[in-house]
């Protein structure tokens, strides 16, 4: 199995302009608003955001804390609902989708990588990585296991399959989280500050992994980050301020 980590030194060369011309839009947001309302305060987290992300793009989103980056990522990933606006995945609006249809979309199209890993501590590394396949119909136990092994191999953790998350370092945990996102072979990976909890060396390692995935597998990646350097390694950088896209 090809190890992405070993082969991700080369930076992807495609630009946003060339992708826009050649690739299909995979995510489209139109006039997305997200307003959090309490009895006394109304907070606008996202203010009429319009965004198109093409197949195979690696987009990073930057901005100060509280500017709405993570909210945007959650809405793209169908983990949250916008107050208004339209989300289209592969050209189809998803607002009217049922819980079951949304779950199927998340399961088949999207893989998540969270800043705090969100691994299930009671499950082994292998069981954690199998998780997306557990909810996919037609995938038997054996196939699940094989695909999970393959995903762990990709992130260089095939020797740790029977370990539990608490036995791993932060970098290893994040690699397990990436393997989990990869196991379902999704078209899109949404990464919310994937290097936020890691030191710079491990952060680089994870970044190289994501870049390798994008370059070799053509996976569309949307990453929220605070790290300017890492953001510049991606094909497109979107800046947010106070819930609005500023660049």
């Amino acid at each position: 199995m090809e190890n992405i980590l070993a082969q991700s030194a080369v930076r992807p060369q495609a630009t946003a302009a060339t992708l826009a011309a050649t690739a299909q839009p995979v995510i489209q947001l139109r006039d997305i608003e997200k307003v959090y309302q309490t009895k006394t305060i109304e907070t606008v987290a996202l203010n009429r955001v319009n965004l198109t992300i093409h197949k195979g793009e690696f987009v990073s989103i930057m901005g100060p804390s509280g500017c709405g980056k993570s909210t945007l990522l959650s809405i793209i990933g169908l983990l949250d609902e916008p107050t208004s606006g339209v989300i289209e995945l592969d050209g189809r609006p998803v607002q009217s989708y049922s819980d079951k249809e949304l779950a199927a979309l998340r399961n088949q199209k999207i893989g998540f990588v969270f800043q705090s890993y969100h691994l299930i501590n009671d499950l082994s590394v292998l069981d954690n990585v199998e998780l997306p396949l557990l909810y996919r119909s037609g995938v038997g136990g054996r196939e699940r296991r094989e695909r999970a092994y393959a995903a762990l191999d990709k992130v260089g953790l095939s020797a740790r399959t029977n370990h539990f998350p608490s036995q791993l370092s932060g970098g290893q945990r994040q690699r397990v989280a990436i393997a989990r996102a990869l196991a379902g072979n999704p078209e899109i990976i949404l990464a919310d500050e994937p290097t936020g909890n890691l030191d710079s060396v491990m952060g680089e390692e994870i970044m190289d992994l994501l870049l390798g995935l994008n370059r070799q597998e053509g996976t569309t990646i949307v990453m929220v980050t605070h790290d300017e350097q890492q953001a510049h390694k991606t094909q497109r950088l979107i800046r947010f301020f106070d819930g609005s896209q500023v660049q």
Binding site: D99, A103, H118, I120, L131, P132, Y135, G184
Partner: peptide, 15 residues
């Protein structure tokens, strides 16, 4: 948190 993760990776409410 586990419920959130399971939902994120495709678990329905029913599951």
């Amino acid at each position: 948190s586990e419920i959130g993760v399971r939902k994120a990776f495709g678990a329905t409410s029913r599951t």
